[in-house]
Nucleic acid binder design. Structure first.
Lengths: 333, 333
DNA sequence: ATGAAAGCGCTAACAG
DNA sequence: CTGTTAGCGCTTTCAT
């Protein structure tokens, strides 16, 4: 392996000079610079980042921790973060807590031992104060608020947009299906409900399903089927599902009862996954601004790494409803 | 920050001893060990992995490089690799070449500067000999063969399985749609075709579409539509699509022509994505053994890191057809 | 069984 | 503008 020492010798300068040339230090004569660069190239020298990290007290690595990478939303978010970090010359070390709080702590401790310059985390459930307040390195939390920097995507706003869309299409018999206990689920419902209440309209059904975002979990299908056993499936003409997966289950159940989407009933999902884009019918869905989220998270983090203020801060991002076939037809009753 | 030095002082031993205790060196008296551990805990000492890496000449990091993370298959593979690596105490640094060869090289060079202990890579297109042969650290290639270690998933076998399935259902008028130029596409087709040829059956249609695995790309939809303009859509009763996305387009186009799947025509996809699991109808699809792939890749790599043989090696994994609604009915003509 | 000492390859004052 | 020097925090012979 070629070391800086060897370059220095070949170029008849000190290691310090080589180091300066490589880090574009201003006080270097053009001549020395080109001489050094000549030898750097000639010898094929590549700096050892581990040594740089130790000496420079800076790794240029950020740790990214997800609550659950099997959720496709997070998988694409992760890609976006990697791309964004790369622009700033940062590498990403990845952690997946797989919905287990214990892992969450372990992974964060691992990040610390690695001396990552900062952490981006999507916490599991309600962020544990003990864990998150005690983190003494730059941190940005996604989706959940902590005492550090935070980027939130307003689920309430998502619900409101869907409600407005349903209202425009003239629907008054509407239902929601999704989790009620989780914060995100609750907020979606809040927004959705409040918008209808402005017009004195009450939700005709609120079905609870606290399922995880995995394809194998069929709970929501059973729940909606069960509901249709005792209720006329055609009565509610517009369903808001808390995820695309659940929306797919709703459509499937409706189909089982010979109800067509969107001809008879319309359905809206959430997350704008592949499924929404390619299902038949394609699914209207609320899209989170993934790229924007990644950009904000990375730049916010790097600002803090570079020593900007360290106070609590919250950025609110808004999701956007993407209308597709599944809500493409109004009923105008 | 608590350093090893401080622990050593507190415990009245040398740093070497602390180091030995922490790395479970055998020649340490029980008494010293517990004394040292007492102070380690008391002071909350956490080893600095950057320093360990520099001194120990080993980072316990593996670099993982994908050709294109927007492909959902790779996103889940990545999660599996992260989980697997964690079991061995390794962290993963992630790279995404985004289908650009130039990035591929840059990222690999970045990995080298980071002194990763090994690299797992899914190369873009045909692996560039210059790039891949010259990598002088342990490496495992996924899906494509290089002169290093390789794990291949036989696409040919996937095609064969689909063909067998179609044959069992009595289908003789069958078509393929997918890329012909890429290796994987070609192999799928080879396997599919050869199985039918055993029975003297020729494929009735082979449609080329070299699309990327992104939801936005509608090319395959146009291609199949175009085909149906000049061919009776009901004539081919079984389609093999090279991906779930393309399969979805086929089904959509058939629906447009009032052909129902699977009642009139059956369709099989590839990759076993979320889409396949949740579409309506659910989609039969060929699943790659992601977990197995991750396990093999990581253990193969770590074996090489730990100095096992360094010869070229190839592991062949087989995909598995998962039958769902879209091919659930035979025609028995 | 433990300590002393020599690095790992680089950065960053401090001097000149 | 460049060189000298002192580390960064740990591992690992080589002694004892």
């Amino acid at each position: 392996m070629v070391t800086m020492e060897e370059v220095a010798k070949a170029a008849h300068v000190s290691r310090a000079t080589v180091s300066r040339v490589l880090s574009n230090h201003p006080s270097i004569k053009m001549e020395t610079r080109s001489n050094v660069m000549y030898w750097v190239k000639k010898l094929g020298y590549e700096p050892n980042q581990v040594a740089q990290s130790l000496a420079g007290n800076r790794t240029n690595i950020i740790g990214v921790l997800f609550s659950d990478l099997s959720n496709p939303l997070y998988a694409s978010l992760m890609a976006a973060i990697v791309h964004e970090a790369e622009k700033y010359g940062y590498n990403v070390i990845l952690g997946d807590a797989q919905r287990e709080k214990a892992r969450e702590v372990n992974i964060i401790n691992g990040f610390k031992r690695r001396k990552v310059d900062g952490i981006i985390v999507r916490p599991i459930g309600t962020p544990n104060k003990k864990v998150y307040s005690g983190i003494n390195i730059p941190m940005v939390s996604l989706f959940k608020q902590t005492e550090k920097k935070n980027i939130i995507i307003s689920s309430e706003m998502g619900g409101i947009q869907v409600a407005k869309h349903f209202l425009e299409l003239g629907h008054k018999n509407v239902g929601y299906i999704g989790p009620l206990k989780s914060l995100a689920g609750n907020n979606k419902l809040q927004g959705f409900r409040s918008e209808f209440e402005k017009y004195g309209i009450k939700l005709k059904a609120v079905l609870e399903c606290n399922q995880h975002e995995t394809a194998e979990n069929q709970k929501s299908f059973e729940i909606i089927n069960q509901y249709f056993e005792t209720h006329n499936p055609a009565k509610i003409t517009a369903w808001f599902a808390h995820s695309d997966l659940v929306a797919s289950d709703v459509i499937r159940s409706l189909a089982k009862h010979d109800i067509q989407v969107p001809r008879d009933v319309i359905v809206c999902g959430y997350n704008n996954t592949l499924l929404a884009k390619k299902m038949i019918p394609t699914l209207s869905s609320v899209a989170s601004p993934i790229e924007e989220l990644a950009e904000n998270a990375v730049s916010m983090l790097i600002n803090e790494i570079n020593g900007s203020n360290e106070e609590t801060e919250v950025i609110d991002l808004y999701p956007r409803l993407i209308v597709r076939e599944s809500t493409s037809k109004g009923l105008y009753k």
